[in-house]
Design a binder for these strands. Structure first.
Lengths: 238, 238
DNA sequence: TTAGTTTTGGTCAAAGTGACTATAACTAAG
DNA sequence: CTTAGTTATAGTCACTTTGACCAAAACTAA
């Protein structure tokens, strides 16, 4: 891919077509350091070159010629964190004129949910670290705004239904689902009422198993049976 | 902008970065030719070169270096139809590998609503024509799928609220709003119940005026007061 | 055995929804 | 001038959904 150095002059910059990049906002549930309750976290990578060298940024990279947008997103997700997502959807195409100080970049951003079993194995290093979604510092480019928008979309999708389960494992208790809602919406929910709603949705299947090992009455385990997609890239999957 | 001819060989094509284009799906209400009731229409342009020469396609064009994505969308909307939209939102970025037979194209597609007063003035010519949204033939590229997705989004937004008014003029009767819903959702709605719902939404303001000249009891005129946006590009507008 | 905590199943009133009836207000035909 | 036809508008009624709350069941830890 052609690289436009930061010393490119104005006419060179105007002649260049906007470059196209793919980024991903990856959400996973992790226990809060303080309360121990599950909260939203996401991995960021440290920039090792200008612009914004040293700042944290969303994982991303250029679009290669032989892969679809979705494939590019899941590839750079795998490359930076070692994860494969249980849910992946296009978020938005950001194309403002001054997103990057050195060149015009159009970023097609995806957002992903990963299950906690996977998230626990995620690579972490000097230049890849997980942060609480509500405690990010100043990120590179317009990435703070992108994360805010992703959070807004996540909350919306949650209300819609059929998304919380992608942050959980295959089997889960109804209380765990409630904790996901509480973490994302950032408010307490009535356990009894919440349970009533979930029990009335046909995609949530009761299993015969119970979660053992807790301190109190063992809760029943459930399973999610239902398809995610309403994206153009997913819509026709039966 | 660089043009890749259809005779480009494989290595040339692989070397070229995906080209970036903006397209728009423009909806307006027009009376049906048969029933006279309002239905959804959209303007298409005839392709004057290969690929798909002679077929109808969504209005669109390349992204120029000095305009935002949204500006590019409203510009090519104005250039092809002479219209300026009352509502404009990003739909999706389509980037499949084989959308165009000659080169890799990533299209960022916007969708727009225009008011009928404007839609009536829209340019029409040999190569620009309006079609009923539910009676399109085979379009160029993947444009049929794009229109289908835009229709799906329109129906969804409608249920959400606060979008139907952008297809109407400044003043409207409650029956006109109902006709918009009936046209988009393609089913009849109970006038009394529909009215009850609209009257309970605070963004719809009763005026002292009545629509005169009809055959029957003159209906009261209403006005919409409320902001559209929840897009990243619109969210911060107060 | 008992205290503590979570799961689970309920009730009750308020609010919302869909189907339907009835009256008001206007035009056009007679 | 009267009346039939049509739309606008208001209201009723049964049913469903929602939020707040109560209570029993089931387990652990002391």
């Amino acid at each position: 891919m052609t690289v436009y150095s930061s010393s490119a002059n104005v006419s060179e910059r105007q002649a260049a077509p906007p470059s196209l990049a793919i980024s991903t906002v990856i959400f996973a549930l992790r226990p809060s350091a303080t309360s121990g309750r599950p909260t939203l976290w996401l991995p960021l990578v440290r920039r090792i070159r200008e612009p914004f060298k040293g700042l944290w940024a969303l994982p991303g990279g250029p679009l290669s010629h032989d892969e679809s947008l979705q494939d590019a997103a899941s590839r750079n997700l795998r490359e930076t964190t070692g994860l494969s997502p249980s849910y992946l959807e296009q978020l938005y195409a950001f194309g403002g004129l001054h997103r990057s100080p050195t060149q015009r970049v159009v970023s097609i951003v995806y957002w992903a949910l990963v299950q906690p079993t996977e998230a626990a194995l995620a690579d972490e290093s000097e230049n890849v670290r997980w942060f609480r979604a509500d405690r990010l510092g100043d990120l590179a480019f317009d990435h703070n705004a992108i994360v805010d928008y992703a959070l807004w979309r996540l909350r919306n999708k949650l209300a819609y239904g059929s998304i919380a389960y992608h942050l959980l494992g295959e089997y889960f208790t109804l209380a765990q689902v409630r904790e996901v809602y509480e973490a994302v919406l950032d408010r307490q929910l009535d356990p009894a009422n919440f349970r009533r709603q979930l029990k009335s949705t046909p995609e949530i299947e009761e299993t015969g198993e119970y979660l053992q090992g807790g301190k109190h009455r063992p809760p029943r385990l459930y399973r999610y049976t239902g398809r995610p997609g309403l994206d153009p890239d997913n819509r026709s999957t039966p």
